[in-house]
Write a protein that binds this DNA or RNA. Sequence first.
DNA 1: AAGGTAGTCAACCGCGGATCG
DNA 2: TCGATCCGCGGTTGACTACCT
Length: 270
Amino acid sequence: MGRQPCCDKLGVKRGPWTAEEDRKLMAFILGNAGRCCWRAVPKLAGLLRCGKSCRLRWTNYLRPDLKRGLLTDDEERLVVDLHAKLGNRWSKIAAKLPGRTDNEIKNHWNTHIKKKLIKMGIDPITHEPLEVRKQIECKSNNGEKSQQQDTHINRDKDASSVGSESSPPELSGANTDNTTGGTNGIHDQDPLVKWLLEDEDDLPTIGIVEEPWLDFTVENDVDKFNSIPSAMSWDIGATDWLLDYQDFGAGDSSLLDDASMVDSSSGSNL
DNA sequence: AAGGTAGTCAACCGCGGATCG
DNA sequence: TCGATCCGCGGTTGACTACCT
């Protein structure tokens, strides 16, 4: 493809992860949560991967708190609403859906929700009814600038624009009352946006647990983590998954190759 | 049955921001 | 203050699968 590899080291493995690699990564992270940076993980875990690849594999697939399977209708609606407010800021959206990853939501958006919205006659970019969009484009062609597209682009580019943009598109998807347009500061009063803008500390508790293993960054204080009992990570709601995972057995090379196995083991869905 | 096409999703890439010395 | 390093994010790719002809 002509792109430079993210890791210039020769011999770094790429492509799909094997069950053995998954096992190594899981074992290392669970045993050493927070004790080093991602860059050091592959070396210490005995993997021929770059740290970035390890982090991605962990956050998108191996994390114990992940749900698997299709998004529920409620989750889809929430994604649509959040997308209307935030645009393609998938990580922010994912942060409001416990157990879902930004990658998963992004994929689901592109493969499912986008089409649904179009079928419903809603523009997946602006969240305006397509008829309204056509009218706007007509106006735009007559010399009037289309605020809709610009607004969305700005939102994508500038996180700080949320709540300050001049004419944000209103909620769409389940909410069809999206033709009212916005006024300055409208998002300041929007409970959804308020919620979105809350600090991570203020996340609602629905389905969210403390996740020390997720705080696997270089900033973590090594001593602090050393002081945490090694079993602690598993006392907070994700142990069932681990138990199921372990039940597959170390000799089961097909482990995790089949996503459905993980689906059934996680057993959770909204 | 075989080949082509579309859909899905895991994984990769490069950029921007945060942090550190 | 500045440069180096690392991480996280969003966009994109490509392998795999299902469906169609």
